[in-house]
Design a protein around this nucleic acid. Sequence first.
DNA 1: TGGTTATATTCCTGTCAAGGAATGAAAGCT
DNA 2: AGCTTTCATTCCTTGACAGGAATATAACCA
Lengths: 112, 112
Amino acid sequence: MSDAALWAALADPHRRAVVALLRTGPRTVGEIAQACELSQPSASKHLKVLREAGLVRVRQEAQRRVHTLDPAPLAALDAWLAPYRKLWGESLDALGRRLDTRPDTTEPTSKD
Amino acid sequence: MSDAALWAALADPHRRAVVALLRTGPRTVGEIAQACELSQPSASKHLKVLREAGLVRVRQEAQRRVHTLDPAPLAALDAWLAPYRKLWGESLDALGRRLDTRPDTTEPTSKD
DNA sequence: TGGTTATATTCCTGTCAAGGAATGAAAGCT
DNA sequence: AGCTTTCATTCCTTGACAGGAATATAACCA
């Protein structure tokens, strides 16, 4: 359930940019807005989403709000990814092999 | 750019369910729809999105379309995750330490 | 050819998220 | 007490997306 919030939060490119920025250290809302080319309200909203996803912590410093990345929830992503990780290891040839497992009719199909 | 499509595709819980299902082997649209409790049109649409994200391949087998998972694009996720992985290793105590680095004023702030 | 199965696509509708402008709220300074 | 800075929130509008129903398409079969 928190998982859904995490995916949703990271689905937005701007939010991924913010997260990436925070990887380089804590920032105030203003700094984040400027660095990510967001309006101040927009930055605030995105940060709220990230906060609710547990990816970001705030600490008040005078009138400023310093935001810090909390990478912990990303462990959930890592965990989600785990079962697949082995797959793309055996991937290219094994996938081909598995495709052959089926009766097969037509060709490998066009990709995108 | 394909990166955005990947995140967007995985943002939807139903689609993650489909991906998880396909991890257990190739399936027809009907099987997928039933297993994931989706209507047939809905399944088709979600599969289209997954296809365009490169996560799924199709192969025609008579009137059926057998869908196979292609885990390769997930490597991009893994790569994205990489810089953060070290963070949650040092995570809990190091995060605390980094928080102390700043002048500090108030407390750890309420979480969610 | 006509019918059936399996899937794709279209159309429509409702919902929800995002962005901008404006305003509100809190803290500090003089 | 005012003024300024920094940020949050609200209001409104727009666009994207999801779901369902109905229809189109394609392959197979009798």
